[in-house]
């Protein structure tokens, strides 16, 4: 069983993920979709950081008490994930700008992104 302190964090992570997915599925405006993708990213990052938490833990920087350090690996992974999220978002914005220049609108076609 996971520590009680963490339970709301996991629920928040799931909530952010599903709100983001809802935005992607229901919106047609490119900027709104990009913001939803940001929510999805954040939800996953919250999940990963929460995975490494220890109740009462400290930051893993030299303080002489190894036993209290929180797990450092998820933090390293999340650093990578954040940078990747930023890169993808910058590129998505560029694509949206290009689309706007060609069509004069930010709205996608009727079915949105989920058209198969």
């Amino acid at each position: 069983m996971i520590p009680e302190l963490l339970q709301p964090v996991f629920v928040i992570s799931a909530a952010l993920l599903s709100i983001g997915l809802y935005g992607v599925m229901s919106k047609r405006n490119m900027l709104k979709i990009i913001i939803s993708l940001g929510l999805v990213d954040t939800g996953v990052n919250v999940l990963i950081v929460a995975m490494g938490y220890l109740p009462g833990g400290t930051a893993p920087i030299e303080n002489g008490n190894y036993a209290l350090y929180v797990d450092p690996v998820p933090q390293a992974l999340v650093l990578t994930a954040i940078v990747i999220g930023v890169s993808v978002m910058a590129l998505a914005l560029a694509v949206a700008m290009g689309y706007y220049r060609k069509t004069g609108t930010l709205e996608l076609d009727k079915e949105g992104v989920m058209k198969w």
């Binding site: 996953v44 993808v88 949206a96 992104v113």
Partner: peptide
């Protein structure tokens, strides 16, 4: 091209999540 790339970006980032 922009439309295809945008769809790829959206599904790609959901995939990476």
């Amino acid at each position: 091209a922009f439309e295809g790339s945008f769809k790829y970006i959206v599904l790609g980032s959901i995939g990476s999540a």
